[in-house]
């Protein structure tokens, strides 16, 4: 099946400066793709290329089988877009803005817009300039989803949103993917992407440096594990288990830093000891990301 988003060698130069270089990506139908990178990495440049706001220096990109530049107009009927640092018309009310954009789209399902407003708890009658940034963001989210798009591009969508609304947004994102659409979610914070994305790409200094599923990233992460055993174990019990980064035994308590899936570790422990209790923190992807973000040569 043809991917929903496909880019091939996509690049954008400003003079000698490569804001984006040789981006090769595919996002399939039903997938939520997280696009991660530190500030200024080139995420927004990539999105502006996809939206035909700027033109590629090299390479091509297509969405839903249509070229983002040549077929831009037809394409925009079928996609939704929420820009970063959203700016709207301050003198319009939320309702006016939605009507304005709906008119430009040749009309949208008014009942669906109403539902979106209720789910996000939006103040539609107030002037946008009088809204808090979070409430303004909600209006932006409605306009991105109101045409029931097959592909949605969201650039830092959680900015200013409270946790309840963030969860509602994640619901909206999942619904698009579950209905066979795809979502391109750009962010510089992992927690936003981790909960909802199937796969992530990490970009730094204009270059894609990693492309992984969330599951495999979790496999790469380091867990801190604490075991309470019936009696103090010998160190030899843990010898030969790949992935143990550090080990500390205090009486019948064992503290382990462990990288990899839990299967091997648990098998080894169960075969040689009698565990009374086991506690582990959530896989800390943050550390993995920090190593990617960190300014090293790639």
């Amino acid at each position: 099946m043809e991917p929903t988003l496909h880019t091939s060698g996509l690049g954008k130069n400003y003079g000698d400066f490569a804001a984006l270089a040789d981006l090769n990506l595919s996002v399939s139908a039903g997938e939520v793709f997280g696009f991660l990178g530190p500030n200024g990495a080139g995420k927004t440049t990539a999105i502006r290329l996809l939206m035909n706001e700027i033109r590629a220096t090299s390479g091509t990109a297509s969405i839903l089988g249509m070229d983002v530049h040549r077929d831009s107009l037809a394409l925009r009927h079928r996609i939704g877009y929420l820009p970063s640092e959203l700016a709207l018309y301050p003198n319009m009310t939320g309702a006016d803005l939605i009507h304005f954009f709906a008119n430009l789209r040749g009309g949208v399902d008014a009942r669906y817009v109403e539902q979106l407003g209720e789910r996000l708890n939006v103040q539609m009658a107030k002037k946008i300039g009088d809204l808090s940034s979070g409430n303004r963001q909600k209006i932006g989210i409605i306009q991105a989803f109101m045409n029931k798009p097959e592909f949605v591009i969201l650039d830092e969508p959680s900015a200013g949103l409270d946790p309840l609304v963030q969860r509602e947004l994640q619901g909206l994102i999942r619904e698009i993917a579950d209905a066979g659409g795809a979502v391109f979610l750009s962010s510089h914070t992992l927690s936003e992407v981790q909960r909802v994305a199937d796969r992530v790409g990490i970009i730094r200094s204009g270059k894609l440096i990693a492309l992984e599923t969330i599951a495999s990233l979790r496999g790469k992460s380091i867990r801190k594990i604490e075991l309470e055993l019936s009696s103090g174990p010998e160190e030899s019990v843990f010898e030969g288990i790949a992935g143990i980064r550090s080990l500390l035994i205090e009486g019948n308590r064992v503290f382990i830093s462990y990288e990899g899936t839990m299967e091997k570790l648990l098998a080894a422990v169960m075969s040689k000891c009698h565990p009374l209790d086991i506690s582990t923190n959530e896989a800390d992807l943050e550390e993995v990301f920090l190593t990617y973000y960190h300014d090293e040569s790639v």
Binding site: M51, A74, R76
Partner: peptide, 14 residues
């Protein structure tokens, strides 16, 4: 300058 052009042109208008 008001940074509304991007979202305006995200609508299907040339």
């Amino acid at each position: 300058n008001n940074r509304t052009l991007g979202i305006l042109l995200a609508n299907p208008i040339s």
